[in-house]
Amino acid sequence: MKHFSLKYTLLTYRLDQLWFPIAFWMLFVIVILIINEPSQSTDMSLAYLGTAVPLIGGVMAAYAILDDPALELRFATPIRAAQIIIERTLMIFFIQAVCAFSFYIFAKSIDVDFSSIGTVLDLHLSWVIPTITLIALGTFGSIVGAQTMIGAFFVGIVWIIQIIIRDGMAINNWKYFYIFMGITNPEHPDLHANQIALLALSLIFFLCSWILLHRQERYI
């Protein structure tokens, strides 16, 4: 691919931000090992995969594009806005995917039961879709506000509100935008519609981010 290098994308990533997903991963692993009780281990594992992974992804995405020391130099090169967004958000998703899969392997190794969620695909969709949604929201928030903090704030607010009113979210007209349905209501008849709606919403966030990122002067 023109104008792209995986090696340098990795080398220029702010490694000091990796403590955030690693710390959460370790916290949940340690708590599960300490509790050592099957039903609570399942709840903790689902909480990590379905809520913590998306939250961390969203917050990291808020910092992924604008928190770049060479942003002005990058803007002066012919790389497209879409490439900047794809390159950086894929990286965040990749980090979250590594955390989620390694956690899943750990959970399976101690016989955590995920059968309540459905198939293996259902389980993984229950963290993949919320993670994509919050990554898109974090990216959009930081770009629309031209500040990384605003993106992180958007993600935090949406996450906490949906956690608090989760029972109501699953039954009213907002159910299509309920991020945690895959984990809290795996047998909900509108789960697939919810997942499609969340993906569509993510696409809209990414499109808006792409349009806004053309106005480079807002970010330097």
Partner: peptide
């Protein structure tokens, strides 16, 4: 382009940084 406030990836070596910018420039 050399901006007034020159931000760089300081963890890279000079050769890596210039190489990366060359890739970004196509």
């Amino acid at each position: 382009y050399l901006p007034q406030e020159l931000g760089m990836y300081t963890e890279l070596t000079a050769i890596q940084f210039v190489d990366y910018m060359a890739i970004l420039k196509g």
